[in-house]
Write a protein that binds this DNA or RNA. Structure first.
Lengths: 318, 318
DNA sequence: TATGATTACTAAATCGAATTAGTGCAACCA
DNA sequence: TGGTTGCACTAATTCGATTTAGTAATCATA
């Protein structure tokens, strides 16, 4: 109740100087000359009073808060994005910033109004990037402040397909989630990258297999697909959920995995190892991408090492 | 660059009144008498200029921002918590607030300093609640602003065990994640609730089965457990990850599920349906708990309907 | 017709920090 | 001795919205 907050004025009074001087000392303003004695008195007073700068006042003065906004499309979740978020959060915290995650799910308040409300230092709009990348065949993101996340997605898709060709497969399909699943946009992006990757390593354009939610429908879809494309010997899945769904359908259809059809997932969830057969998947070091993104938006040098390449977690399904 | 922000002053100038009047109109201050004509001029001017109130200035004046902080322990994720967060986010957005999620993972900056920095309207500290609930056997949370989330966890654990007894099981065990998995604290809470629930429905205290990460170790742990407690015919798992791990171990050990041992999960992840056998699990309407939490912290009436009870997603494993 | 109440507003202070424009004072150079 | 420069600080303004105290003008009442 009565806990009034310790302001700069209090520190000033306690150390016998003006608030301006306190500000100069605490912000290490180099253009101002402050005697070491005063500097010392101010810092100890601040410490003893437990002074914490009031970010809101600071933000009002500076015109921008120390908040970074991450806008995600609705319904997009997964271990990769979680790790990305964590990397972002940690790196931002390391520089005194706070990550605000805005899920597209929010009914009211568009992103623009949230931005006007919070005055964030920067905005990482993955929903925009996803859209961007899906639209043009050039896939050149306008705002490249995502730490290379989308570029990474392309590279990782290449890793996924390459693993299949290295295992001897030459006729490869891509498995996608249903269009109404909320992943539709990202699915188009990934499909685009898969086609690019296939062209790069000299494969024919991969046919696509969309797997419906409903188990019976899914079984039918898979059976039809195998009838239409009998030569396909391996499937690169959009993510592990799609891969595991496919695995369970194939189990029901008595199709041997990887004997008759190999399956590789994406984004290596832990559950994958409990599937039968255990799911081979592509693991992404998304956390380092998050870290890069943080450094990018804060205007810092990106880390010298390039982001870790995707690694294939080899289990049983390929 | 030159895009100066539209302030209240601009609106005042455009409508020929003072900034104070603009504030009164825009905030519907009932203590002040404003003529309908003026009221109209101000609102249209605000609309035409595209005036968006500057939340930071507002926050400085009011001493608190329209931000609500959700503090989560490190490494705690899952569909339940995701849905909880979504419910919270949506309901807060509906009342002009923004949710800031703070993952315990952040290396620098304690929760206290983040609070001092952001001056949030409210803090929902689930890490604290988890600790609280785990400590005393009374499990009476000090801050009950979580919308009944922890209480719900207790109720849902009861649902989980009850489903097993209704299926005819009388000797039930609890499966837990390893202590070093980051879930340790929550695992203790859930175990506490499981014991309470068992007592309530007249079961003996359930033995616990901790399942190590490593597959070989896990297999050994399960075999030893079955040797020590041969009468146990059903296992209530901490979450679906543990349940699915158990399922894959049992598959390797040639133990029939649910024939020789029934398994029920918790928090119904989608992957569960792709396990063999498909995992029966407890689904929680966490979103409505998030919504309740939002209303609680904003000081609004909670919705009249009680939170939806947990439902059992019956598949094959029980 | 003077007094009081009500209406419809405005001026100015406030929140807490950052910053620009000064103000004394001492040292230094010619 | 007068002028310049450097040092160590302070006063006062600013960011944008809220709110208290106050002021004209109108209306009602005695």
């Amino acid at each position: 109740m009565g806990e009034r907050r310790v302001t700069m004025r209090d520190v000033a009074k306690a150390s016998g100087v003006s608030p301006a001087t306190v500000s100069f000392v605490l912000n290490n303003v180099t253009e101002q000359h402050i005697s070491p004695a005063t500097r010392d008195r101010v810092t100890t007073a601040a410490r003893e009073l437990g002074y914490v700068p009031h970010a809101i006042a600071k933000a009002l003065r500076e015109g921008t808060s120390r908040i970074v906004l991450l806008a995600l499309p609705a319904g997009i979740r997964g271990p990769g994005l979680d790790a990305y978020t964590r990397g972002l959060d940690d790196e931002l915290a390391r520089h005194g910033h706070v990550l605000l995650v805005r899920h597209g799910s929010s009914l009211h308040g568009t992103l623009a109004s949230v931005i006007a409300t919070v005055s964030p230092r920067a905005v990482i709009d993955l929903s925009g990037l996803y859209r961007e990348a899906a639209d043009g065949p050039a896939a050149e993101p306008v705002t490249s402040n995502d730490g290379g996340w989308i570029d990474g997605l392309a590279a990782h898709t290449l890793v996924q397909l390459r693993h299949l060709t290295r295992a001897g497969h030459t006729s490869i399909a891509v498995a996608l989630p249903p269009d109404d699943s909320g992943w539709a946009r990202l699915a188009r992006v990934r499909l685009h990258f898969a086609r690019e990757a296939a062209a790069r390593i000299g494969l024919a354009e991969p046919p696509t297999l969309t797997i419906p939610e409903d188990a019976a429908e899914a079984a039918r879809a898979v059976r039809d697909f195998r009838r239409e494309f009998p030569s396909v010997s391996a499937v690169a899945a959009f993510d592990d959920a799609v891969a595991m769904h496919l695995l369970s359908v194939l189990h029901g259809l008595d199709v041997a995995v990887p004997g008759q059809l190999a399956v590789i997932g994406f984004d290596a969830v832990e559950y994958g190892s409990f599937a039968t057969p255990a799911l081979t998947s592509v693991h992404i070091d998304a956390q380092s991408y998050g870290q890069r993104a943080a450094r990018t938006v804060l205007g810092l040098e990106p880390p010298s090492e390039p982001p870790a390449p995707a690694t294939v977690i080899v289990r049983e399904s390929v």
